[in-house]
Design a protein around this nucleic acid. Sequence first.
DNA 1: CTCACTGCAAAGAATTTGCACTGAA
DNA 2: TTCAGTGCAAATTCTTTGCAGTGAG
Lengths: 139, 139
Amino acid sequence: MTWEERLSDAGFRITAPRRAVIQVLQEADAPLVPRDILERGGGVHPELGLTTVYRTVALLAELELVRRVHQSDGCHAYVAATPGHRHHVICEACGRTVEFPGSDEVSALIANVERTTDYRIEEHLLQLFGLCPACRGED
Amino acid sequence: MTWEERLSDAGFRITAPRRAVIQVLQEADAPLVPRDILERGGGVHPELGLTTVYRTVALLAELELVRRVHQSDGCHAYVAATPGHRHHVICEACGRTVEFPGSDEVSALIANVERTTDYRIEEHLLQLFGLCPACRGED
DNA sequence: CTCACTGCAAAGAATTTGCACTGAA
DNA sequence: TTCAGTGCAAATTCTTTGCAGTGAG
């Protein structure tokens, strides 16, 4: 199912600005902040406004089509989400992002922490930062 | 070694505003955003300014005495850091925060991800969210 | 046809910077 | 005594809101 179908099924309209934002996010391989999306989206739909970018990413995030990632400097960038997968490795040099599945290690860790801290864990935020193969100079 | 000694050793001066910010952060058991720190710090040093709070947390974070944590709503809150420990469990109800050590599971996970993605992992951000024992109604 | 969606401009936060003054070392 | 550190006010972002016009369904 495409993003447009998902929007449509959820009762939202398919408009030119939304198409532009969707296209930009789907083509990006690194997290983008709203301003990035505006700039790139301008190539597709020049009238695009920043307000609409904010509203659209909020909508897409709610439908879990994109995910918000956190960065040490500029927080709140967005990347396309792979369904079921929840974590990101972000290249510190080029920003290129890859998702990896929530793994057994994470489950084991959570069980472990629940036992030692007596908290009941419901959510987690896990992001790894490093260098992608290309930026390590092995391209 | 106290925080003041650490500051001093690093060549920074010990001032009343810095003492106030330090005291507030050391007494807090949940992450605080700059405005929180300002309000609480006002009880200790009424002239405290928001600018100084920003500058002081940046300094403390650089010395790794506090850590910046990310929250889904208001990003960028700060908590006292336990040396060597790197992760937090934050209670979704009361905000109370507990640190837990970087464990074998995390190392295993990282090794795993390095293998499958071919990224070289250098940093990670791991935060768990859940309910602390008190907020689960078992107090 | 309707009303969800849009862009603009303005309002509101969050954060940083310029600057003269003050007090820690 | 000196200059790092401070508070204020102003400047910059970043993000949200109010509103009248417009086009998707």
